[in-house]
Design a protein around this nucleic acid. Structure first.
Lengths: 248, 248
DNA sequence: ATTCTTATGTGATGTAGATCACTTACTCCT
DNA sequence: AGGAGTAAGTGATCTACATCACATAAGAAT
């Protein structure tokens, strides 16, 4: 059984151990194949894995760590498209050879990657039909994830967008607490929450305050705790999408 | 040379003949392979190809016609995610076998499709490595298209979103007129334009009025004519993405 | 502890865009 | 040609959010 260089030593930065998303799409054999063409790379918190404009010809498997995909506009505002973590595969392999990244990849925690080159991947896909199928499933899930975010952000205002985000965070980083409580195991500040839904930190703060008064959420030492998931689902007309696509 | 059932008789509903998008990703041989597993289907303007909740296990190639992918919320508001036309391939093949459509597909013009079943496609991908590669490129383009729309709608307000939309429309349906003018060869009313950017018809109307006064656009018998593309590009910080992904 | 820094919390105010209400202009139909 | 139906156009409000301007709190550094 392959372990893709994952170290499980105690005290690692990534103390949580989320389900490896990639395993939802790839069989062990196919993961092993992908692993065979990966080369290792490290990057520390605060650095950038790539910038907008860099060539888009690689995929990244996160052995350990966390990365955020963002877009910054000229006037300073910024949106976050995705957050990826240990066990995720991400990256843009573009259909045209001169294609460039359209977003930045900011490293949030000291991270280790397995990098897959486009060329190598193509050879592998060409040779292994079942890997190609798994790969297609992974891409389809990414696409659905993007589309459902689109829907959530467009359809139910900022409160809806925030509730959708909290649900997604609970799927990605939620840990059960007492009662039915779910604790988001990553600290994410109001500014960052805002960037994920296209709102200001003040708006996020006010919405969270309101929901705190309504006993929907609670802030425990900077960590968001969800106390009433049903309420959140209601606000954004949650359709109970599978967890594979309902994530940040 | 395959023709995929495309009829070029005069007076067809789809009087324009846009570039076949699918040819940007698939070689003739691979298109022929796809064609071999398609079965024909017709649908008339105003009908729905599928509804939210239907099984998501098919792809559709548009031999002729036009289709719009939308999401309607309980309270009546609606957004349009995509518009597809002659020569486009679209559809969701989901990673999980019980997956359902998350959007509706409304037929805008009498249309003819080639329908591809998930099972058949998988067999084909499994057997033909180079088809799998082309397929991956197509999916990557779809993903980029969704992501760049996301960016355009989030980052520069409604005027930015509208300008981005007009640029995309010009890539999808633009015909050169006198001077540098570009005529959008499909009539799209203000309500529909609004649904594509998450705005009301009134807002769209006012923005178009403003731009008409500034000599940026002109309305010619219900058709939008772009007179100053540079102005539009400016408002939404256009990055001159390739036409394959900058479309509606 | 003491300071420095970075995050949260909230009021006051401004504004983009929605909503409402109505008029005017097309388009289609018999 | 006349009337019905649908879309465009536009003012008057209303409201969701952003912006601005601070105050307070919580961590981190010395």
């Amino acid at each position: 059984m392959a372990n893709y260089g994952m170290e499980s030593k105690a005290g690692s930065t990534t103390e949580t151990n989320p389900t490896e998303w990639v395993r939802m799409f790839f069989s062990d054999e196919n993961l092993e194949l992908l692993n065979s063409i990966m080369y290792p790379k490290r990057a520390e918190a605060g650095s950038y894995l790539y910038w907008e404009g860099d060539r888009a010809d690689k995929l990244y498997f996160i052995k350990k760590g966390r990365v955020k995909i963002t877009k910054t506009s000229g006037n300073g505002s910024r949106i976050t498209l995705y957050m990826f973590h240990t066990g995720d595969l991400f990256g843009q392999i573009d259909p045209f050879y001169d294609a460039a990244q359209s977003f930045d990849a900011e490293v949030l925690e000291d991270s280790e990657f397995g990098v897959i080159q486009r060329k190598d991947l193509e050879v592998l896909l060409w040779q292994h039909g079942d890997l190609a199928i798994d790969f297609m499933k992974w891409m389809a899930a990414m696409q659905r994830m993007t589309q459902t975010k689109f829907r959530d952000l467009m359809l139910f205002g900022k409160p809806g967008a925030l509730c959708s985000l909290l649900i997604r965070l609970s799927n990605s980083y939620g840990k059960p607490g007492q009662d039915q409580e779910i604790k988001i195991s990553k600290r994410i500040n109001n500014t960052e929450l805002g960037e994920m839904i296209g709102a200001t930190r003040e708006s996020v703060n006010r919405m969270l305050s309101d929901m705190r008064k309504e006993n929907v959420v609670e802030i425990d030492q900077g960590y968001v705790v969800i106390k009433d998931l049903e309420y959140l689902k209601n606000v954004c007309n949650c359709e109970n999408c599978p967890k594979e696509i309902c994530r940040v």
